[in-house]
């Protein structure tokens, strides 16, 4: 596989008047085209920062980020970003929300509108394109947010805990739907999460990050033998025998201590 996204010895420091924080230290990572990787780590380990670097809204203090072999200098059409909540704008209808990306990037709006309507239909929101976000349920809103991300036709999807604001059932159902959609369309995906189950059930490869300063601590290729070579849906993957083993290993590596 050729590297779609390449992080070369990335480091990042933040300065405030109170402190000098080292967020990331020499992080190197290759993501192949069409690969689905998950980055897990505890809060504050810099995993979301990593996504901002790939998205081009943050510049590393050291090292380089390359997409398709070219250095990232700013936000690109190739990258689509999904945040922790849907952040649909309450003053826009569902379709108008989906079209915000094409509007900003100055794309052909007629084609974008057709794409938007098609995406919303595909995600079961066809009847709701002229509704306002407050009229939708949480799961519908997050699917609208996915349509918004895909409407600019990115090859690379950056998912920053996109399900964390949803209730548990919706979360499992949506994880199935989203991974299905992204795999079918052969997108390259980087998912950031603190939920080990989510990472193992969705991704081809799980990257474990250490506490601050964030470094890559371990990598796991996730394969399920029972499914006959094909990747099981996330919900089914949770019942595969390998699932528990991956979970325990990663749990151990995260050094999660409660209390004290």
């Amino acid at each position: 596989m050729t590297a779609k996204v390449e992080l070369r010895d990335i480091s990042l420091r933040y300065f405030t008047t109170e402190s000098d924080t080292e967020a990331l230290r020499s992080v190197s990572l290759n993501v192949g085209a069409g690969e689905f990787i998950a980055i897990v780590g505890q809060s504050g380990c810099g995993k979301s920062t990593l996504l901002s670097l790939v998205a081009g809204i943050l510049k590393p203090t050291g090292g380089a980020v390359l997409v398709d072999g070219r250095p990232v200098t700013g936000p690109m059409r190739a990258c689509g970003y999904m945040l922790q909540q849907d952040y649909l704008f309450e003053w826009r209808t569902v379709l108008e929300n989906v079209l915000i990306g094409p509007e900003i990037q100055g794309l052909d709006m007629k084609a974008a509108r057709e794409r938007g309507v098609q995406l919303l239909r595909r995600y079961g929101l066809g009847e709701f394109i002229d509704y306002y976000p407050h009229q939708l349920s949480g799961g519908m809103r997050q699917r609208a947010a996915l349509a918004r991300t895909l409407c600019t036709e990115p090859d690379i999807l950056l998912l920053d805990e996109p399900f964390s604001a949803l209730d548990f059932q919706t979360r499992l159902a949506l994880a199935d739907e989203v991974s299905e959609i992204l795999r079918r369309e052969n997108k390259t995906v980087i998912l950031v999460t603190h939920d080990i189950s989510e990472a193992v059930s969705m991704a081809d490869r799980v990257i474990v990050m250490s506490r601050r300063p964030g470094r890559i601590k371990a990598e796991h290729l996730i394969t399920f033998a029972g499914a006959g070579g094909t990747r099981p849906k996330p919900f089914k993957a949770r019942h595969e025998p390998e699932f528990g083993r991956y979970f325990d290993t990663i749990w151990g590596e995260l050094e999660i201590h409660v209390g004290h």
């Binding site: 998205a55 700013g74 690109m76 945040l83 826009r92 990037q105």
Partner: peptide
Amino acid sequence: DPNKVKLVRTFGATRAQILAKVVLPG
């Protein structure tokens, strides 16, 4: 919400676009 600003920035919004699409209507 700064995340709304972040959202349009990921699409490559300029400062004027952030103003026109997020800050003013919001």
